[in-house]
Amino acid sequence: MNIFRLAGDMMHLFSIIVLLLKINATRSCRGVSLKTQELYAIVFVCRYLDLFTSFISLYNTTMKLIFLLSTFTIIYWMRFHKVIRVTYDREQDTFRYQFLILPCFLLALVLNNEFSAMEVLWTFSIYLEAVAILPQLVLLQRTNNIDNLTGNYVFLLGSYRALYILNWIYRFMTEPNYRQYLVWISGIVQTIVYIDFFYYYIRSWRNNEKLSLPA
């Protein structure tokens, strides 16, 4: 565990806390994409199947359980909470995510390190995570007034990805047998997806303006 990895994980954790607090405090999920949350739920379920088969550390297990539990909580609120579900931007959140899920799964069947159910699902989760933010970014583009917390949520998630790249560079330089090409390429793609958002986020912050993304 290096400082970049820990910082990345903390950004990931903060992003989810920000989202939970926002929805819970305002009783509103306006601007939040249910599709992205459901994609993350699929990502976490497929990747963390090893909760049942191997124990890495207490830290690892705890974080996995937090990510799973928090994502399912958000989905539950957005779908079923009697106050919150009314605030969901159903008409705007129309990204057809089956067009992400199917290609990622097919790619995982072909490009993987080992053709076993666990490994294919793990690889699928890596590919799917790279594009899971897309419905959220499209929704933000359609939302005129992006509230600070939703903007911060996406910014923290993007920071988590950027820090993971630094973590990989550090590990590559310090661990002799460490390499994971599929993860690196997916992670770089995932970070590139955020670059446009980062540009407008930082610009709005510097100019003290409300964040809005051009359509």
Binding site: M1, R5, D9, H12, D50, I56, S57, N60, M63, K64, F67, N113, W122, Y164, N167, E175, N177, Y178, Q180, V183
Partner: peptide, 10 residues
């Protein structure tokens, strides 16, 4: 503690 194929990452 950590494996070297990245499966220990979150």
């Amino acid at each position: 503690e950590e494996s070297d194929d990245g499966h220990d990452e979150l």
